[in-house]
Write a protein that binds this DNA or RNA. Structure first.
Length: 270
DNA sequence: CACTTTGTTTCCAC
DNA sequence: TGTGGAAACAAAGT
């Protein structure tokens, strides 16, 4: 399930394959994958263009073209990329094929069809503008987090998965971060003591950093461009776990916060 | 067949 | 007007 560490891994591993190459064609095997513009206009603006660079913002992967246009790929739930040579489609869940020069192909594989492609002429679009700060950026300091938390009502878990609050964190990393901080997911955001906010800040940086080092979490359908899986999920303490707390041995509890399954240890996260 | 999964969108109350 | 919560939605797996 692509969240920040998974999209970052895809970006890092795809970049050497695609930067400096020209796009020969993009085929959509699932029409709804492209949200805008129309397919004919998309083809006209993309074919023959050079991929200048790849970047990531939140859960968006961004292909910057030499024409100034950018292809935004919103990776959501089950989306990932597989690189190949274009002979055959590697999976029945392939939703789009980006063909580059020298026979390089990138397959967008997305079993649940939630991922979206969008071509824009300016990165100042609503989808990106609304995103909160990048948690891994050096500019995301504990002072920034404290500022965000003050006056914010509602459970801390809800804040962490809110893309306008912080970009790139989804359900599973929110659970891991809260476990690492020893904070109950239902604690109101503005109720944290200074020391708790410090712990939360450290946990955000640490959980994401470790997950990036482990090339993302391969829960359900995520894999890397070369076909390998990530191993970050092997280190998960509570997210998607059914068993007992690895620290205190008590049962992990599952509750629902903002309509989302939330795993936590009621003892360690009192 | 009901339920789960994640993020966005829409709607409603305050 | 902003904020926040709940529900609906998208699609497929179990």
């Amino acid at each position: 399930m692509p969240e920040l560490p998974e999209v970052e891994t895809i970006k890092n591993e795809l970049a050497p394959l695609v930067t400096g190459r020209r796009i020969k064609s993009v085929d959509f095997l699932w029409a709804k994958t492209l949200v805008s513009p129309s397919i004919p206009e998309f083809d006209a603006r993309v074919t023959g263009k050079l991929v200048k660079s790849l970047e990531r913002r939140g859960k968006y992967l961004i292909f910057n073209l030499d024409s100034g246009d950018s292809l935004l790929v919103h990776l959501r739930m089950t989306g990932s990329f597989l690189s190949g040579t274009g002979k055959s489609v590697p999976s029945g869940h392939t939703r789009a094929v980006i063909r580059l020069d020298d026979g390089i192909c990138m397959y967008f594989i997305d079993p649940r069809k939630f991922g979206k492609f969008q071509l824009v002429d300016d990165l100042r679009v609503k989808a990106l503008d609304k995103l909160g700060p990048e948690p891994m950026a050096a500019s995301f300091t504990s002072a920034v987090l404290i500022k965000l938390l003050e006056g914010r009502k509602g459970p801390i878990k809800a804040a962490l998965v809110d893309q306008e609050f912080i970009a790139g964190i989804g359900n599973m990393y929110a659970d891991e971060i809260l476990f690492e901080s020893g904070l109950n997911p239902l604690r109101p955001s503005d109720s944290l003591a200074a020391e708790e906010m410090k712990r939360l800040y450290k946990a955000i940086k640490q959980v994401l950093k470790r997950a990036i080092e482990n090339k993302g979490a391969s829960i359900s359908n995520y894999f890397r461009p070369g076909g390998e899986k990530g191993t970050a999920h092997e280190g998960f303490k509570v997210a998607h776990r059914k068993g007992d707390c690895p620290v205190c041995g008590g049962p992990i509890k599952r509750i629902v916060v903002r309509q989302r399954g939330t795993y936590f240890c009621p003892v360690c996260q009192a």
